[in-house]
Simulated assay, not measured.
Amino acid sequence: MSTSPEPHRAPTGPSDTLPLRNGMHIPVLGLGVFRSPAGRVTQQAVTAALDVGYRHIDTAAIYGNEADVGHGLRDSGLDRDQVFITTKLWKADHGYQSTLDAFERSRRQLSVDHIDLYLIHWPVPGIRLETWRAMEHLLDTGAARAIGVSNYMAHHLEELLDHARHLPSVNQIELSPYNYRSRADVIDLSRKNGILVEAYSPLTKGRKLDDPPLVRIAATHQRSTAQVLIRWALQHDLVVLAKSTHADRIADNADVFDFTLTDTEMETLDALDENLVTGWDPTTAP
Rank of each mutant, 00 (worst) to 15 (best):
Q109S: 07
D75V: 01
D16T: 07
D81P: 00
V149Q: 06
L29K: 00
H221N: 04
L119E: 09
Q172S: 04
E130M: 10
W232G: 12
M1I: 07
A61K: 08
S2T: 14
I147Y: 05
R21T: 04
I26P: 15
R40V: 10
D101F: 06
V52P: 15
R191T: 04
D188A: 11
R183W: 03
R40H: 09
R107H: 11
S182P: 03
A251N: 01
Y63A: 10
L214I: 14
W232D: 06
D101C: 07
T17F: 01
D258G: 04
R40Q: 10
T131D: 05
I62N: 00
N22M: 07
D79V: 04
V170Y: 06
G77L: 04
V46A: 10
D237F: 11
L272I: 12
L50A: 03
L234P: 00
N65E: 09
Q235V: 03
T268E: 09
H71W: 15
I26E: 11
E104L: 08
L138I: 08
D270T: 08
R105Q: 14
N193E: 01
A143L: 15
R40K: 14
H137F: 05
V239G: 00
L89E: 06
V83R: 02
D113V: 14
I187C: 05
T268H: 12
L29N: 07
A254Q: 14
K91G: 02
V239C: 05
S2P: 11
K205A: 02
E274I: 11
R207W: 14
V228H: 08
T268S: 11
V41T: 13
P37A: 13
I85V: 15
K88T: 08
Y54I: 05
Q172K: 01
V124D: 06
S4K: 13
A134W: 02
P7H: 00
L203M: 13
E6G: 02
G30L: 06
L160V: 03
M135E: 03
W90N: 11
D263M: 05
V149M: 09
L272W: 08
F84N: 01
Q172N: 05
D263L: 11
A233P: 01
A184K: 04
V197P: 10
L229T: 01
A226V: 13
D263Q: 10
I26R: 08
L78F: 09
L117K: 07
D162E: 13
A242D: 08
H155M: 10
A60R: 01
T264H: 10
Q82W: 00
R128S: 12
